[in-house]
Design a protein around this nucleic acid. Structure first.
Lengths: 209, 209
DNA sequence: AACAATAGCGTACACGTGCACACTCAAATT
DNA sequence: AATTTGAGTGTGCACGTGTACGCTATTGTT
């Protein structure tokens, strides 16, 4: 196993993945992609596809995994910025919006497959979003000293709001309108943070009595 | 124009609409439906389809319109229940969850086409959701005497949370888990309501000084 | 050096698709 | 009563699809 062969295989595997990603757009969903199209874009014969994936489904799940990875990188990036000081909510929203702008099609993939027709896809997307939510939950719990259940509800609501805003942002070209959307999203996240903090306090007070 | 003919036409038009709705499911999206399938389900020859819709697209937009109608009926229904007394948030969530249970496929249609590949579909869905949001916004503004902009942000966030919960509910069979989801959603809506009320108060106080 | 494994190719097939076209025949109009 | 309209039919075409099959050529193993 010198690797010359395996290395080449990995290379064309990436070619296929990238070919699929490249064809994704606002007008083109993964499910509308055909095996032949992807193979062609990768410069392969249709039948060679099977040397790497048994199925378009398998390719799709790989893409979802990669998208989840992107999401986790985003979280790390946001944390680094936060460590340098500034409003947590503001920085998080800004970082997320930058993802939308630079990796719109990856995000679209997640949004679409979350409500798609394949149970496996839906489960995979939900899993990735859950990771994301859980990481935020831990952070909130520690940073704001929240009740665990309350922190989860806040994290869940926050992720929902941010993803929805991201979805809206995908259809907005005007930079000014986008900024407006960010501002609104930030305010909504503050609503949630405020409500969560109060409930957490009330619960803690209840326990002491 | 005695109507015997027009009446029959309307009847088979409904047949087509119902056929399409019938074929929608968790595993079957509208975009995956073919003209031939729909026509067959309606008991028509494929080519007869064109006497009623120029396109599958046109049928789809009609379905989205109907879904929007369903949404507005839901709002009315919730209001009637609220008038009889009880927690506004609780009743609203319960009513919405009933819609998910009885009209899951209609709701799925909205969710999917909102992030679909057709700009026209996306616009149509967004329009319907906006109507819904605006109606809620008016209600919140009047009932809670809120600042207009704040009321909109609250309505927008609330609809986002509820729709997301609805989307989750579609994949939950267990009634207990569903109830848990409802409880969580109610709590999240309270977070938002709390935060919105505070901001609105602060704004009003600011104006007086 | 001989052999096995395998990435990639080209051909071929059956299938479902949207849609064009030329019909029929009942309802509506004149 | 004569004519026009239009809802619904059946046939047929060109196209894109997934994938089975047998092949080549290169790498890895013995």
């Amino acid at each position: 196993m010198s690797g010359v062969r395996a290395q080449q295989k990995e290379k064309t595997r990436r070619l296929l993945i990238d070919a699929a990603l490249k064809q994704l757009s606002a007008e083109r969903s993964f499910s509308s992609l055909s095996l032949r199209e992807v193979a062609k874009e990768a410069g392969l014969a249709p039948t060679s596809f099977y040397r790497h994936f048994s199925d378009m489904n398998e390719l799709g799940l790989t893409l979802v995994d990669e998208a989840g990875l992107t999401l986790r990188q985003l979280m790390r990036q946001a944390r680094q910025r936060i460590a340098k000081g500034g409003s947590v909510i503001h920085i998080s929203v800004a970082t997320f919006m930058e993802l939308i702008e630079s990796n719109g099609n990856v995000f679209r993939l997640l949004l679409r497959e979350r409500s798609g027709t394949s149970a496996a896809f839906r489960a995979a997307v939900i899993r990735e979003i859950r990771y994301f939510t859980m990481e935020l939950c831990d952070y909130l719990q520690q940073a704001n000293d929240l009740d665990g259940e309350v922190a989860y509800m806040q994290a869940n609501a926050a992720v929902t709001i941010v993803f929805s805003a991201g979805s809206d942002a995908l259809d907005i070209d005007d930079k000014v309108v986008r900024e407006q959307l960010s501002k609104q999203t930030i305010q909504q996240l503050r609503f949630i943070a405020r409500g969560a903090a109060e409930l957490s306090d009330r619960r803690k007070a209840g326990r002491k009595n």
